[in-house]
Design a binder for these strands. Structure first.
Lengths: 201, 201
DNA sequence: CCCGGCCCGTGACATTTGTCAGCGCGCTTC
DNA sequence: GAAGCGCGCTGACAAATGTCACGGGCCGGG
């Protein structure tokens, strides 16, 4: 029996997948968690063979959780299953030790197949996405630029960002300007969107 | 047999739901469409009793499709199933003649139950959401303000928006300012976010 | 050791953005 | 027909934003 852990915040999706995978003869869903910060605890308790993780989860990112799992339960393979096929996500998933990366756009049938392949030691990666990840190149943003950009997503003003990050306003503007330059965009909004699209966030 | 149509752009979700609902004795999935502009054609061909529609679909919004269905195939009940429980969405769904409104956050079990209730003539609405929709009040934005705001989502400058909508830059700024005022926010980014959150977009 | 990169800051500058007061036009509603 | 509202426009103003050149400190690699 292949023991599975599911992490996914859309409960309907998680429930559907759990039922579906449970129908496979050789699979068994041993844990379902709706938040990123519950993954490790659930995994340590239930000892799954494969963990299916969404990326955008409340509490803790699925990518971070993947890294945690690699450290604390290396026997457990990680398969990232996400809505957004962003190049930077794939890259980070690989760095976090994930064994596979699927987008939810694909057919359900792929899922069980991917699980078996991952368990056999293979790496399963969406082929189109792999190309995009390679052509996109690595993240050009420095850590600080990322911080400032992420702080700017919800419409915060320069003053807000400066206060949140304990920086001078002028410094914030400089970082913002640098990020805008590196993303080849015209203002912070476009910069944020471009960075997100690439998974640089 | 209850004949079902599914419209959903995340194929994995759609596939999982189709399989799952197909397991119910009295249900049968007769159509699966991944785009909003294919819904009506598929419905006319397959004559479903209930259509499960996502809102954010490529091609045409599920809400618009719901209105189309009411006109062209009134025998078909519409159940909106969406990720985002935005008050304005619920309101618009009701105006488009939908019989039910579920969020994907809920458990899968609810789904089959909701389908049966909708078919029995009941209205199925997430209770928490109904309260939010009532307390949020109707959309305060004028059509033009909406246009300008939606044109601003991807970081377009005032000049871009003016060009796209064939308006003077000053006019665009005025609409933007009005929208900012009505949403009680501080700049266009916050205004866009607030409007989206409420489903005023 | 020196170079380069990242970090954090300054000051000055042009541009963009948001606000306000007003104008005329057309429509609906009372 | 007057009042109210949405539409589109103008002009002017303050504030926020983006750009540039520049400084210093800290670190790691050649």
């Amino acid at each position: 029996m292949i023991r599975l852990l599911l992490a996914e915040d859309q409960r309907m999706m998680m429930g559907a997948l759990a039922l579906l995978l449970g129908l496979e003869d050789d699979m068994e869903v041993v844990a379902q968690v709706p938040a990123g910060d519950e993954i490790v605890a659930a995994a340590l308790e239930t000892r799954p063979d494969v963990a299916l993780l969404d990326i955008e989860l409340p509490g803790r990112s699925g990518l971070d959780a993947a890294a945690d799992l690699r450290d604390q339960l290396p026997s457990c393979k990680v398969l990232i299953v996400t809505t957004f096929g962003r190049p930077g996500y794939l890259r980070r998933a690989m760095e976090a030790g994930a064994s596979g990366f699927l987008v939810k756009d694909g057919p359900v049938e792929d899922l069980a197949a991917a699980i078996r392949r991952v368990l056999a030691g293979e790496r399963v990666i969406d082929p189109g996405l792999a190309a995009a990840a390679l052509s996109a190149g690595p993240n050009p943003l420095t850590p600080r630029e990322r911080d400032v950009l992420t702080a700017a997503v919800d419409g915060a003003t320069v003053a807000d960002i400066a206060a949140k990050l304990h920086l001078s306003q002028a410094t914030v503007r400089n970082y913002l300007s640098a990020a805008i330059g590196k993303t080849g965009t015209r203002n912070r909004i476009e910069a944020v969107r471009a960075a997100r699209r690439n998974g640089w966030l």
